[in-house]
Every structure is written in structure tokens, then in C-alpha cells.
Design a protein around this nucleic acid. Sequence first.
RNA 1: GCCAGUGUAGCUCAAUGGUAGAGCAAUUCACUCGUAAUGAAUAGGUUGAGAGUUCGAUUCUCUCCACUGGCUCCA
Length: 636
Amino acid sequence: MEKINIIVNNKTYSVDKNITLLKFIETNMPNAKYNIVAARDVDGNIIELFTPIGNDLKIEWISVNSEDGLRILRHSASHIMATAVRRLFPNTKVAIGPSTEDGFYYDFDSPERFNEEDFEKIEKEMQKIIDTDIPFIKSYILRPNAIEKFKNQGEFYKVELLEEITDEKVSIYQTDDFIDLCKGLHVPSSSYIKAFKLLRVAGAYWRGDEKNKMLQRIYGTAFGDNKSLKEYLNKIQEAIERDHRKIGREMDLFGFYPEGPGFPFWKPNGMILYNTIVEYWKEIHTKNGYLEVKTPIILNEELWHRSGHWDNYRENMYFTEIDGAKYAVKPMNCPGGLLIYRDGIHSYKELPLKIAELGLVHRHEKSGVLHGLFRVRQFTQDDAHIYCTEEQVKDEVKNVIRLVKEIYDDFGFTDVNIELSTRPAKSIGSDEMWNLAENSLKQSLDELGISFKINPGDGAFYGPKIDFHIKDAIGRTWQCGTIQCDFSMPERFDISYIGQDGQRHRPVMLHRAILGSIERFIGILIEHYKGKFPLWLAPEQIRILPISEKNFEFSEKIKKMLQDFGFRVKIDKSEDKLGAKIKNARLNRVYFVGIIGDKEMESNSISIRKADKEENTIININDLVNFLNEIKKSKK
RNA sequence: GCCAGUGUAGCUCAAUGGUAGAGCAAUUCACUCGUAAUGAAUAGGUUGAGAGUUCGAUUCUCUCCACUGGCUCCA
């Protein structure tokens, strides 16, 4: 009998691996016939353990609502969904059905076109399966037998999977009449699914490859109790309410029109936000020793052959013609920047040379991927290229990391995850270059004591990179900043500096962006703040609400004064009552409203309040500018 | 690009094989007003575009465009 060692509560147990029935229960289910847990083995993998009650084995239970528990629960829910779908649509073939970060899906190949109206039917059938408490029965069979079995059933996706598995034996799970090739784990029976919901249907390629057949993927989620499901659905709702496309419209920030799909149009309010960010960005970069340049948007095609973009990035580029010669619209700023560097002789004394560019780039994104400001075809990168010696790389990378953190902090993002991506399959440059580059980045992070995740094969085609992911107010993460180490472009452009020895040397080039794309970053900011920006970013910082026409003149005086001090201020001279004026100010996400009535005029003051708060502060006009400046300075 | 869905007034949404309505917004008038919507009136649409079926299409069919959710990709 095959045994497996597992560690539970620091004790090692030898356990029979051939289990045919799996029970997975919570401690608060005393009537279960069997106790079974999912535990972690020595390598940290989840393995299963089976023991009848009465065995003295002490088990550390995992709750249904723990990360592992939910994964098991959701994976089981996907099987139940597949069972239901196959009951309702018998001609449906199944592909794979894993759990995801917050739910599960199953990919189907079916003559039926599923749509969301089918969900009710499928959910009902799933509920039936859950109510009848059908067990998940696990068994192991020899791989050739499994291939035979699934072939007979016409489940060719399973056969394809099986043909790649090298194990002698594979496990299969049976739920009702639905038999699925599956490693597990699963809950013991369907009634463990206490709350589930199907969410959407989408197309998905078999094995994620667009050359393969498009399958129909049904997404859903499941929880151990109804309350958690409700909380999850509320979170989805919250994300919908934060949608930057909706808030952007409400605040009149930007627009997209059919005349330019994927090309954002910035409206006056949006430009205020945009320019405020740019001004801040320029200031902090100047302070950190960066010089600024601007390079052309359209450049000769020859340049892109030299840079390697033509070979590696062509399908994302736009091309044009000038006087019969071929030109390309830049998808990246570096080649242009390199021309500037190459224009002159550089001494080692100039290095590190930090050249920043807010570069407008165009990339042809497939029509189906465009998404508000998050995914556009034209955007401005807050780019910079740092030319330095190999010895300087580590320190420069560290400097960039510090700057990245400072900038994110100023925008209210304090939670940052860092990832290191290594050489991809499609790449240029020698092995030595790649090793040197990857090691330099790794060491910089290590020396700063920063923990990071490694993404093998995720680097740019010209070098490895460090990516920065910020976490927003509702816990979503967004990749924004990046540092890319490039030994390749300097060679292609044959750039050099004169070293202490009077000889020419090849500098290293670091590409880096902090906000990533200003357009996208604004989208993230909108969703993070739900449009309620801190004072320094708010397109409209203060709106003065006169109670009646008698107060207009005094209001104008205050407006003029605030404008002279650089504040963005408007007066609501509409015929609305005060309540309506406040409502409108809130809707427009104005930061402060200042109320001017006879009372205020008499005392030469203004009743000021944050537009979304109840409390008023009465401030003398002479103190107003100081009051606002204090809040603006703090950035947050 | 692929799969599915959607497209009606500035916004949110109704309705119908016999050329369309509501609320909010807008405009005008009255009210001169104190903390999340004062009242009245007016105006606003070749129902995304094109073609087909039909006596008649906004409705049914097809093509295209755009958008939404995914796949893939990515800042």
C-alpha cells in the first residue's frame, strides 16, 4: 500500500495515499461520518489526509473560509456547475474548471450558446445537486485506462490533458454521473457549498492560445456562507461605483468618441488634473537630478529596425509615409532618446546621466482590449533613461526605487508590491548581458532589504525589469512603475562615454517609468479616490455658495483673492436653494464648499466645509488662504 | 483579433411591425432663499450607420461601427 508522509501540528504521519472518499469538514460539524483535512506536506503542497473518527490523529482543521478552504470549495462548485450544465445540455464537452482568485470557472465546448439568461436555469440545477448532497467520490486509475475512458465519452480535451501527464496513475472524481479528471481537492459532498453565484459568460481559448478553439467559459463564485457571498457581491458593486469611466463623465474629465477609439480626449477639468500631476512630476524630477527632453512622435522606419522594435514590436506599431519614405509612430521613447545621447561626446564625469521625457506614444492595441483610460492606444509615459556605468547600476536602481516610493506615497498609495521579471523567450542580447542585468536588479532589491516576487520569462525583449504594483483603496493591485535594465540598446546604437582611462566605454541604459502611463494612472487615481481627490489634485478646490444675490459681490471678492493665490475656485450663482447647491457640489466632487450669507458678510468670514462632510468651520477671510495652504501642502 | 452581450434625448432608462415617452440635466420665467433636489413653462430624438424582408422597420434579418464583459496582450 502506498504511503505518504505528512506533517500536522509538527508531527509526521504516514498515511495511506489511496483514498477513495474524501471528507472535508469544519470543526463545527460534529455529525460527519469521517474527518478529513486538507493539510500541507513538507514541501508546502496541499495534500489530503483521511482518517475515521476515533483515530487518535490530531488534525489542524482548515476552515471553509480560509484561503485553502475556499479554493477547495470553489473548485468543487465548478464541478457541480459542470454536472449541472451537462445535465441541461448533454452535448456539452468539458475542458478545465479550476478555482480562481475569487471564484471559479469551467470551460465548455458546446453547440449551445450560453448567455446570462441560462444562469438561472443552471443555478437551479446546481442547487438541486447541492440539496441532494451528492458525494464527490475519488478514485485512482491507471493512465491508459483513463485515456480509454474519456475517449469513449468523447471528452477529447481530457484525453489531450492525459496525454501530457507522466504519472502512472491519475485521480478522477465522480459527482453524480459526471466523471472528471481531477487532482482535487474537493469537499466530501455537494451540500458543503452553502452560497454560490454564476457571474458571467465569456469566450476563452483552449489552453489560452488564440490558435485553438474558442470555448465558452462560465465564471462563478462560491463561499462557505451567504454573508461572505453578499460581501463579495458588494465589493463588485463598489468597484462598479468607482469605475473611472462613470466618474470621469460625472466630473467631466475626459471622453472617448467613435472617431478615435482608444484615443482619449481630455476636457478642461481633466486637463487640470493632468497638468497638476505633470507639474508635480517635473518638480520632483528636477529635484532628483533629472534633465528633461522631448523627442518626435514620428521617426524614420530605419530607426526602428536598429532598435529591434521592428522585429519584436511591429504588430503594435503605426506606420506612415513622408515624401515616399517610410516612417513609424513611436511606441516607445528610448530610440529617440538615444539619438540625443549619441549627439555629442560624454565623459564618465557626466554619469549617471538622467534624462526624463514625458513621451507621447502610440500603440496599436487590439480592438477588444480597450478599456477606458486603463487601456488606450495613445498615452504619455513618464519615461526616463539613465545612462551609467556597470558599477553605478545598483545605486541608480536603488535611487529610482526610493523615488518611486516617495511619489506613490504623495499620491496616497502606501502599499507597494515589487516583482522582478526575467528573460522572455522572445529576446535580444547575449546570455552574459542578461545574467549581469538580472543580477544587478536582484542585488539592488536585496541591498535595500525589499522583498519581491520573481516572474520568470516576463521581462522586456531587451532586458529584465523590476515592476511596481500599487494597491488601491479596495485592495486591487495595479502595475505602474518599472525599471528595466538594458545592455542591448546601447550596443545597437553604439553609444559610449570616455572613461578615466581616456578610452571609449559602453554605458548601461536603465529605462524607468513611475506612473507608467499618465492616462492610466489618472484612471487608477479616480478609482482609488472614487473621484474625491485630495485638495492638491481636485479639479475644483472650492466652490463658493452665495445664499442670495445680495452675497454675490462679497463672493466675487473672495474668489478673486483665492484665485490670486492659485486656488481653483468657482461661484455657484444658480437660482437653486442652498441644499441643491451643496448637492451639486458633492456630485461634482468639489473639495470644499464655502457658504456666504448675510451672517458671514457681517463677520467678514466664510462657512467652509468639505463637500462630503456635515461639519462647518467658520473662518475669517484673512485666515482663509493659510487654512487652505496647510491642507494642500499635506498632499493627502 | 476572437467569444458573448449592448446601442432609443446630454445622463439613467421605458415602449412598439403602423416614424417614440419618463426622471434628472438644459433653457426661460417666478421665488431672494441658510446646509443632500423651490415651482411652472419650453425645448430636445433620421431610435449607432448601411442594406434587405415588408404596404409600412426604431422593432425582424444581414453587414459594418462603437461600447460592455471576458480570452489574449499590456503602461
